[in-house]
Amino acid sequence: MIRFLIPLAGFAILVVFLGLGLQHDPHEVPSPLIDKPAPTFSLTRLDNPAQVISRADMLGKVWLLNVWASWCVACRDEHQHLLAFAKTKVVPIYGLNYKDTRPDGLAWLNQLGNPYEASLFDPDGRVGIDYGVYGVPETFVIDKTGTIRYKQIGAITPEVIKEKLLPLLRKLNA
């Protein structure tokens, strides 16, 4: 009897592991930056090359850093949800305009609306690399102490806002 149970048990273990593996999206690589200090940056505003925003300016408030680009197709889908979310004024949303040009980025905002307090201009993607960005859109939740608390890989949807962002923001703002 045991002779048959052993392979069966082995098979069952294999099925469990493979089943768990199927639940994973290999394109969602967990960020090592969660619960670590947000990397420093010092970038000009997309709409004003003379004004610099740095990490230190953001301390003391909970904020969202949304990585976007005018060439990014998924950002278009996401944009309406960001606009709606920005209207609720739950949290200030800052953009990281990633590997884009100023004219393209600004035209995009003019055309589709601007949910951002400000967009940081990162034309060569260096700050993107520091934040471990490997695709757009990505969104970081950063707390009052400048610590990254959450990273959304891929577009923000109403479900993500409801199930992930709002509960977390409530906790961080408490």
Partner: peptide, 8 residues
């Protein structure tokens, strides 16, 4: 690279 993208 690991600090930014993880051991992956």
């Amino acid at each position: 690279l690991v600090a930014r993208y993880g051991e992956f």
